[in-house]
């Protein structure tokens, strides 16, 4: 029997395949952003859990008070409002809180973090354009935030539809779904874009985060105070959660109770959010564009 032996050539093989089109880079960045967010429990998973809890509680409330037994109790004030109708808009504030916490653990430091760790050199030495980066980050953050602020309301809307007593009732209430999507979408944009904008304002993570927290908490409180004292709706609407809640209440037919919400029209609410989102995106775009030009080259 003949003996044989072989050594295989493990030498280098050039990549002869096709390269993906430059237009797909943003998706890579988006996937990466989501993967990074998913890694630890405290960045994102915990707050999704919180959102799930909110949905569960609100849903349970809706279900329990829909039961014929509780019909008597299921009324709110004079208006022919049922708790089951109120649960969705009231839960919005809670989803916003969860989204805000996520923005603290995640969104508010993204760009400052990339500046600090030198990530822009990494990105822009490759065929990544500023628009790919911005789109990817926004997309990623948007997807993450949507898990909290979009899925919840839509589920609750679906549950409400499920609790309808008749087919015509169902048809009447179908409009709930697009309304939930609208509110959810508004909240998603707000809590994804605005913290990202703040993360681009400073070179250090901590500073960026502090600025975002101050703007949201302190700035928001001041806006509410001035708005309620002067009874001007649009000033109060500068506070993001207030604006979103105002829009939700309008959409779902809730009375605007309380000094905070009184006087905010739907237009004011939507404009305030959209304006802040647009400003944030503009800031991010400028910062990233600048980073692309300076990020490479080092000290010499």
């Amino acid at each position: 029997m003949a003996m044989t032996g072989q050594i295989h050539d493990l030498g280098y093989k050039r990549y002869a395949g096709a390269r993906r089109d430059a237009g797909t880079r943003w998706r890579v960045i988006m996937r990466h952003q989501i993967a990074m967010a998913w890694k630890t429990w405290w960045r994102f998973k915990a707050w999704v859990g919180m959102a799930v809890l909110i949905s569960f509680i609100a849903g349970a409330v809706m279900y329990i008070f829909s039961n014929r037994m509780f019909h008597g109790m299921g009324r709110v004030g004079d208006a022919a409002l049922m708790i089951r109708d109120v649960a969705l808009p009231q839960s919005i504030a809670w989803y916003c809180r969860a989204a805000f916490i996520t923005s603290l653990t995640l969104g508010g430091t993204i760009i400052a973090g990339d500046v600090q760790s030198g990530a822009f050199t990494f990105y822009f030495a490759r065929s990544v354009r500023p628009r790919d980066y911005v789109l990817g980050k926004l997309g990623g953050l948007g997807a993450i935030t949507a898990c909290i602020t979009m899925i919840g309301p839509v589920l609750l809307a679906g549950l409400r539809l499920g609790l309808c007593e008749s087919a015509s009732d169902l048809v009447d209430h179908l409009v709930l779904l697009p309304k939930a999507l609208l509110v959810g979408g508004l909240a998603t944009c707000a809590y994804a874009a605005v913290p990202l904008g703040f993360s681009a304002l400073a070179d250090s993570r901590r500073t960026a985060l502090a600025m975002w927290a101050a703007y949201y908490l302190v700035g928001g409180t001041i806006a509410i105070m001035i708005g309620s004292i002067s009874h001007t709706g649009w000033i109060a609407a500068l506070d993001l959660p207030t604006a979103i809640q105002g829009v939700a209440n309008h959409l779902f037919g809730m009375p605007l109770i309380g000094p905070r919400l009184s006087g905010i029209t739907m237009a004011e609410g939507i404009t305030s959010v959209v304006a802040q989102v647009v400003a944030a995106i503009a800031i991010v775009w400028t910062a990233v564009d600048r980073a692309q030009k300076t990020g490479i080259g080092g000290s010499t």
């Binding site: 390269r19 430059a22 990074m36 890694k39 973090g113 990339d114 760790s117 030198g118 990530a119 050199t121 990494f122 030495a125 490759r126 065929s127 990544v128 354009r129 490479i296 080092g298 000290s299 010499t300």
Partner: peptide
């Protein structure tokens, strides 16, 4: 530019990583 960057590798002097 982007096509060139696909064919060129850059090893920077400074730190250029992503955390975590």
């Amino acid at each position: 530019g982007p096509e060139i960057r696909d064919r060129v590798g850059y090893m920077p002097e400074q730190e250029a990583f992503l955390t975590g």
